[in-house]
Computed example of a mutant assay.
Amino acid sequence: MPIVELHVLEGYDSTEKRRLGEALTDAVRFVVPAAPDAITVMIHELPADQYFRGRSPRSPAPARPDPARFVRDYLAAMERRDLDAAKAMLGDDFTMQFPGAAPMTQLEELIAWSKPRYNFVTKTYDRFDAMQSDGAAALVYCFGTLSGEWLDGTPFSGIRFIDRFEIEGGKITRQDVWNDMAEVKANA
């Protein structure tokens, strides 16, 4: 039964501490074959005035936003075509890659690229997987199915997709998309 103890400065709210506990549980499970309820995580808070580094008291760093929630909010803005809200979530060096397309850096490019392919598309999500990369980026994968309408008005549904996002500095810097849309369309 693994036990993990974490010491943090006071200042993180209960949601942030819960995220820490879940992430530490998942990290242990990545290496140790233990069920989640067999792993104990204890978070100890230390008042900021009792912690010194280099003879100076320190404050806790602000928690990063939940990357899966951030991606979900971005995808919701895209689906409702709130491009201003979606653009505000993108980094200056944002790039996206869709099947059969050259890399794109602007949401307007995506809309122009998709216009001759379908009238609209919506996503149903099965799950979101979030993790930290070796570098600065948080990675989020979302899995699910696409539904929508082809250009001739025929509906489609159940098309598998996976999206992969990189988030750095609170902004999405990369999106890669894989789906079975071309295969389904070819066999329709």
Rank of each mutant, 00 (worst) to 15 (best):
P2A: 01
V4E: 07
E5W: 03
L6F: 00
H7M: 07
V8I: 14
L9M: 13
Y12K: 09
S14F: 01
R18F: 01
R19I: 11
L20P: 02
E22S: 04
A23N: 15
A23T: 08
L24I: 04
T25I: 06
V28Y: 00
R29I: 11
F30M: 12
F30R: 11
F30W: 05
A34F: 04
A34E: 12
A38P: 05
M42K: 06
I43K: 00
H44L: 10
H44V: 13
E45G: 07
L46W: 01
L46Y: 00
P47S: 13
Y51D: 04
Y51K: 05
R53D: 11
R55D: 07
R55E: 08
S56G: 04
P57V: 13
P60G: 03
P62E: 02
P62Q: 04
A63P: 03
P67D: 06
R69K: 15
V71A: 09
Y74M: 09
L75R: 11
R81K: 15
L83N: 02
D84W: 05
D84H: 07
A85Y: 07
A85S: 08
K87F: 02
K87T: 15
A88H: 04
M89D: 03
G91L: 05
D92F: 06
D92I: 03
D93I: 10
T95Y: 08
T95Q: 13
M96W: 04
F98I: 12
A101T: 02
A102R: 10
A102S: 14
P103W: 14
M104L: 12
Q106G: 00
L107I: 13
L107C: 05
E108T: 08
I111K: 13
W113D: 11
Y118E: 15
F120C: 05
V121K: 06
T122A: 10
T124F: 04
T124N: 11
Y125K: 06
Y125M: 13
D129Q: 14
S133Y: 09
S133G: 09
D134I: 09
G135Q: 12
A136C: 02
A136N: 10
A137Q: 10
V140P: 11
G144Y: 01
G144K: 02
G144W: 02
S147E: 08
G148T: 01
E149Q: 14
E149H: 02
W150V: 03
W150E: 12
G153A: 08
T154V: 15
T154P: 07
P155R: 08
P155Y: 00
R160G: 11
R160L: 03
F161E: 07
I162K: 05
E166T: 12
K171T: 07
T173A: 09
Q175M: 15
D176T: 15
D176V: 10
V177C: 13
V177T: 15
W178H: 09
W178Y: 06
M181V: 14
M181G: 05
K185Y: 08
